[in-house]
């Protein structure tokens, strides 16, 4: 688009008189400083996103480096130790990671089967009318702020779990409740993206299946779903990344204090929950605690970025086949 074809026709300076027609014999390229400026400005707008990424990498890198140069902190301990107790100088990230894995695990436990089922139902079974109602409803609900889901976890899911399993078993703060509600949060994400992938499968493939005498279920599960697999996988990975980075539900419902436990009914602080607690307290900017959240942030960034890149690979593969 940057070619000069449009420059061939000079601009009319005046609508009247024949002068501009005479001028039009001159087909020289002429400089257009205004247009150049506009293009430069627009490029800058595009480049802001690069600056943002560079900013994130720089900030996380610099502050993490600062953290790891503190006395008594080592990269090895960070990745191997199972104790996170800044007060005694123990910075092992595993308790936070296991808590994150647990909430994410519970979230996927809910969202994966339900989300896929909803997607298959909407794309292969539901009438056009039902689909037109349900899809926007799911999408709007996916837009509800996560802090509201956090409220829901504390005021609904936790009491529910406590009434089922007993108050002695289930703590007020626990990873199960946070994870289950997180599952509800990412369910629309999985179902919506997967439904898009399933709907993108051409009709002809379904017809081929029916023409061989397949039932609707056989067509949906054995032909359409495998055909949309890369698209569905992309949806699941995006949801996974979203659950790992999800903050407010974990901060409100999972517990405030790192704990190395695999009991889902005990409180345990996730990576994101820890970052929120440290930064909402009155802790000095120069403390090690403060630097530590950047180290955790770096880990989180690398994890989610990797998942997103992988997901985009799957999307690209899906597009290659069907678009």
């Amino acid at each position: 688009m940057t070619g000069g074809s449009e420059d061939l026709a000079p601009r009319a300076r005046s609508a009247t008189g024949g002068r501009f027609l005479q001028q039009s014999h001159d087909l020289r390229k002429r400089p257009r400083p205004g247009d150049m400026l506009v293009q430069g400005l627009l490029f800058f707008c595009g480049a802001v996103s690069i600056l943002t990424t560079l900013g994130i990498v720089y900030v996380l890198g610099r502050e993490s480096l600062l953290f790891f140069t503190h006395k008594g902190v080592s990269l090895l301990e960070f990745f191997t130790s199972t104790t996170w107790q800044p007060s005694i100088g123990k910075f092992g990230v595993w308790p936070l990671v296991t808590a994150t894995l647990m909430t994410t695990g519970f979230a996927m436990l809910i969202a994966l089967p339900l989300g896929l089922a909803v997607a298959v139902y909407l794309s292969e079974y539901a009438s056009a009318r039902a689909r037109n109602i349900l899809k926007p409803v799911l999408e709007i609900l996916a837009g509800i702020p996560t802090v509201v889901y956090g409220y829901f976890a504390l005021s609904f899911m936790t009491p529910l779990l406590r009434s089922i399993f007993g108050r002695d078993v289930v703590s007020i703060y626990n990873t199960a409740s946070a994870g289950l509600v997180m599952g509800i949060l990412i369910l629309p994400l999985i179902s919506s993206m997967s439904e898009d992938a399933l709907s993108a499968i051409p009709r002809s493939l379904r017809e081929a299946s029916y023409a061989l005498g397949a039932t609707r279920l056989e067509t949906a599960v054995q032909v359409v779903l495998p055909a949309a697999l890369s698209g569905v996988t992309a949806a699941v990975i995006v949801a996974l990344s979203r659950a790992i980075g999800e903050t407010m539900i974990a901060a409100l419902a999972a517990g405030a204090g790192p704990a190395f436990t695999i009991n889902p009914f005990r409180p345990a602080e996730t990576m994101t929950g820890h970052m929120v607690r440290i930064s909402s307290g009155d802790i000095s900017y120069d403390s090690m605690d403060y630097d530590s959240i950047f180290a955790i942030g770096s880990l989180l960034f690398v994890l989610t970025l990797t998942l997103n890149v992988v997901s985009r690979r799957f999307v690209a593969r899906f597009r290659e086949v069907y678009e």
């Binding site: 943002t52 900030v59 995006v238 980075g245 903050t247 970052m275 942030g297 970025l305 997103n308 985009r312």
Partner: peptide, 13 residues
Amino acid sequence: NLAGVPSIIYGLL
């Protein structure tokens, strides 16, 4: 990729 970065990371930035 930026669209998929957790919001708390933007907070750190």
